[in-house]
Design a protein around this nucleic acid. Structure first.
Length: 466
DNA sequence: CCTAAGTGTCATAGG
DNA sequence: CACCTATGACACTTA
């Protein structure tokens, strides 16, 4: 019994300075020599409950009348609260235990109470700040200390749960910070001239959508068009593997499904017929991206960019590369130039005798075409990333609100526990008597700290350092 | 005329 | 070293 209370209570009670320090006696004594007090099993339980609460809540000051238990602390950030001990208690602690107490954590009490059973050490992994609840003003008395225990423990369980959740709060805050930075970065991106839509417009559809439902026909005013059978490439014994290379991401289809014309096979515009692109290949890129890369060359763009290259003898709806290829009589389609694998592309080049200018143009067309596809993919990814981050931001906001509500509930429960403990210790001191039956009042004691422990000493008595 | 969105192109870095 | 991909930046068109 005695060892139990000694091992449980991280509180050393000094009797020095009392009128009759040697006369104290009781059923249970503290670890301070000479102190005796009447202790009942009920008191043991109260002490247990007290220590558990102190360990969990790090209750460092216990002035119930001065506290507003339902004070809602503005939610700013959980990080400072967590850093103070891991329980998010950001309430003002004007009389908190000095730093010397912080330096003594569980190990201090393990040394002071080596006989403490492990199961009586709550939260052994945390720094424990103990203080004595000195309640002067509470008039509420608990009729039965046993009745207090179950609700206390239930509250403790809730506090433990809430404590765990506070770790989530911290992580969430960190995530929010990161997200904020990312979001800022996105904002910077949006301010850049990347030409990316934030989603208000539908152009960036999924690749699978690009395959279906897009009536990809060549423009009706297309000025050039050549059938595959008419192309030089086909006439030059193209390998079937090359002809079958239609699964690449489509980009340069300025001559979709065709090979480039020569002056010999060029035909009047109005005699050309056009095939739906979807019937010739399975595009991969999003819908809107396709529309521009599938033959809808923009006349005005290249006219303004390269106005001097406009030739009255060349159809005006051709892109710059198309016109250049036409001018240099490149004997295969731009689609093949861009989409063929490097080996097939090299083999294709080997099948023709091209001048240096032709080779340079072909390689430029290939480079630009691949880069165009890459740019489209890059923008698509950027858009998807923004959508993902917006969704994640919404989830984090909801989580923050949930944790904020949970934290408020925790604070309310803690205030209730403080009130209950105040009453509890008032009751305990009401039974603290010396051997002559003199009743000690809690008012006769004060809290003092020494060597990392908190001592309950008679008032007007200074503790000597150990 | 201005603006935002969309797109192609270039330069560059990295694989 | 050649080639490819990713991406920022720029210029331009279009609605």
């Amino acid at each position: 019994m005695c060892s139990a209370i000694n091992s449980v209570l991280p509180l050393r009670i000094s009797c020095e300075g009392l009128a009759n320090p040697g006369r104290l006696h009781g059923e249970v004594s503290t670890n301070v020599t000479g102190f005796r007090a009447h202790r009942s099993p009920q008191h043991m339980e109260m002490d247990l409950a007290w220590q558990e609460l102190m360990a969990i809540t790090e209750l460092q000051e216990f002035e119930v009348p001065n506290e507003n238990p339902f004070e809602a602390i503005p939610y700013l950030s959980m990080e400072p609260m967590v850093s103070q001990g891991g329980f998010g208690m950001s309430q003002p602690q004007p009389e908190s235990i000095p730093a010397t107490c912080d330096a003594h954590s569980t190990g201090v009490y393990e040394n002071a109470y080596p006989e403490m059973p492990p199961y009586q050490r709550l939260n052994p992994h945390m720094d424990m700040h103990y203080s004595l609840p000195v309640s002067h003003g509470s008039s509420r008395m608990l009729a039965n200390t046993q009745a207090l225990h179950p609700p206390l423990m239930s509250l403790l369980e809730h506090m433990n749960m809430t404590t765990r959740s506070h770790g989530i709060v911290k992580d969430s805050v960190i995530n929010l910070h990161c997200t904020g930075q990312i979001k800022q970065g996105c904002a910077d991106d949006l301010e850049s001239d990347s030409g990316l839509s934030l989603g208000s417009s539908p152009p960036l559809a999924s690749p699978e959508n690009a395959v279906h439902g897009v009536p990809l026909y060549l423009p009706a005013d297309r000025t050039m068009g050549y059938t595959e059978s008419e192309s030089i490439g086909e006439q030059c014994c193209m390998r079937p593997s090359l002809l079958g290379s239609v699964d690449y991401q489509q980009s340069y289809s300025s001559y979709p499904g065709t090979s480039y014309p020569t002056t010999a096979n060029m035909q009047p515009i109005n005699q050309q017929t056009y095939q739906p692109i979807a019937s010739m290949k399975q595009p991969v890129l999003p819908t809107a991206l396709q529309l521009n890369s599938s033959g809808l060359t923009r006349l005005g763009s290249y006219q303004s960019m390269y106005p001097n290259q406009k030739s009255s003898s060349v159809p005006v709806h051709l892109s710059r590369d198309e016109r250049r290829a036409l001018a240099l009589k490149i004997p295969f389609s731009l689609e093949k130039i861009v989409n063929l694998p490097v080996d097939d592309f090299s083999e294709l080049l080997s099948q023709f005798t091209l001048s240096d200018a032709q080779l340079a143009l072909v390689r430029d067309i290939r480079r630009r075409g691949k880069n165009k596809v890459a740019a489209q993919n890059c923008r698509k990814r950027k858009f998807e990333n923004i959508v993902h981050l917006e969704n994640e931001l919404g989830q984090l906001r909801a989580q923050r609100e949930h944790l904020s509500r949970e934290r408020l509930e925790f604070q309310q429960n803690l205030a209730i526990i403080k009130c209950q403990l105040s009453d509890l210790y008032t009751q305990v001191f009401s039974q603290l008597r010396d051997e002559e039956g003199h009743l000690y009042s809690v008012d006769e004691f004060s809290l003092q700290q020494a060597n990392g422990n908190i001592y309950l000493v008679p008032r007007n008595t200074a503790l000597e350092g150990e």
